[in-house]
C-alpha cells in the first residue's frame, strides 16, 4: 500500500489538516496522553487521501470519550445515542449508497451496549467503515471494567483484577462476516491510516480496532503512569502479522508481559453487500 501524502500549505498557527477538522474547537476536551486525538487525526488524513469529496463523507459516533470524534471532524457528522451508532450509520449507508459512512466509536459503545448491532451489521455486510477505539475500559464514566478489559487488569469495579474473558474484537468481526478486519495501535500511525484508506475504498463492512491509551482511567488503575508509558508498552510488545489466519489466538493480555500484542491487517475478502432493492 502506498504511503499517505497530502498537499501541505503553510500558515503560522494552522495545521495542514485543519480544513478537515473544526479547528475553532481545538484544543479538544480529551485528556493529555489520550489516543483518541491521534485516531481523529488519522481519519482526517485518510479522508484527504481517499479522493472521495469531503461532502460525501459522513462520520457517526456513539457515546463515550470517542463519541466526541463526530464533533471535531469537519464533515457531516452525527453523535448518536449509546450503542446506536451502527443502526444510524446503517440507515444512511443503505439509503444513500453514494456516501462513505464511517463509524468512530469506543469498545464500550460498539461491543457492549451496541454489541448486537455490531454482529448484525457485520452479518448483513453493510457498506460501513467502523473504527473501534479500544482503551480496555469505560473511560468517560470513571474506569469501570468493560467487555474488552483483559483478565487480571484492574478497574474501579474490579479492584482485584477482571475475571471475565474479554472479547477478541477482530476475531468477533471476522467470525460474524466483516470483509476487512485490522487491529493497530496509535503508535502505528501510517499503518492505521492505510487501513482506514483501504476500508474507505472497499465495499462492505470493514472493522478496524485501534488500541489507544487511557491514562486517566485505565492507566490509573493499572499503574500505567501516562499515555507515553502505555504507548511504550505497545512498542515493546506489538508484533505485526498481516494476513494471519489464526486471529482467534490473538487475545490481548496486558498482564503477562511475555505475550505479544498481535496487530496487522488480518482479513481482506469480498462478499455480497447489503443494499436497498430498487423498485
Amino acid at each position: 500500500m502506498s504511503a499517505i501524502d497530502i498537499t501541505l500549505k503553510t500558515a503560522a498557527n494552522e495545521h495542514p489538516i485543519d480544513h478537515l477538522l473544526r479547528a475553532d474547537r481545538l484544543p479538544h476536551i480529551l485528556c493529555p496522553g489520550c489516543g483518541i486525538g491521534t485516531v481523529i487525526h488519522g481519519y482526517a488524513h485518510a479522508i484527504a487521501a481517499s479522493g472521495i469529496p469531503e461532502d460525501n463523507h459522513v462520520c457517526v459516533s456513539g457515546i463515550g470519550c470517542s463519541g466526541r470524534a463526530a464533533g471535531y471532524v469537519n464533515v457531516d457528522s452525527y453523535h448518536s445515542t449509546h450503542g446506536r451508532a451502527l443502526p444510524f450509520a446503517l440507515g444512511i449507508a443503505v439509503h444513500r449508497p453514494e456516501l462513505k459512512v464511517t463509524v468512530i466509536s469506543g469498545d464500550g459503545d460498539l461491543s457492549a451496549i451496541g454489541g448486537n448491532h455490531l454482529i448484525h451489521a457485520a452479518r448483513r455486510n453493510v457498506d460501513l467503515t467502523v473504527i473501534c477505539i479500544n482503551n480496555f475500559n469505560y473511560g468517560m464514566t470513571g474506569g469501570q471494567v468493560g467487555p474488552t478489559t483483559p483478565i487480571g487488569a484492574r478497574g474501579t469495579t474490579a479492584p482485584e483484577g477482571a475475571v471475565e474473558a474479554p472479547f477478541n474484537l477482530p476475531y468477533l468481526a471476522k467470525a460474524t462476516g466483516a470483509v476487512f478486519v485490522a487491529r493497530w495501535t496509535i503508535l502505528h500511525v501510517r499503518e492505521f491510516q492505510d487501513a482506514v484508506l483501504r476500508a474507505m475504498q472497499k465495499k462492505g463492512f470493514c472493522f478496524i480496532e485501534v488500541l489507544a491509551p487511557c491514562p486517566t482511567s485505565f492507566g490509573k488503575s493499572n499503574k500505567i503512569g501516562d499515555g507515553l508509558h502505555e504507548v511504550e508498552i505497545y512498542r515493546e510488545r506489538c508484533r505485526i502479522e498481516n494476513g494471519a489466519a489464526n486471529i482467534e489466538d490473538f487475545d490481548i493480555d496486558l498482564v503477562d508481559e511475555t505475550k505479544p500484542i498481535v496487530v496487522g491487517n488480518f482479513v481482506d475478502i469480498e462478499r455480497k453487500i447489503f443494499q436497498a432493492h430498487k423498485r
Partner: peptide, 16 residues
C-alpha cells in the same frame, strides 16, 4: 512527519 501524525492535539507539523 511522525511527530505530526502521532500528535493527538494536532499541535505540531513539519514542512519540507
Amino acid at each position: 512527519r511522525f511527530c505530526d501524525l502521532i500528535c493527538p492535539e494536532l499541535a505540531i507539523f513539519t514542512l519540507e
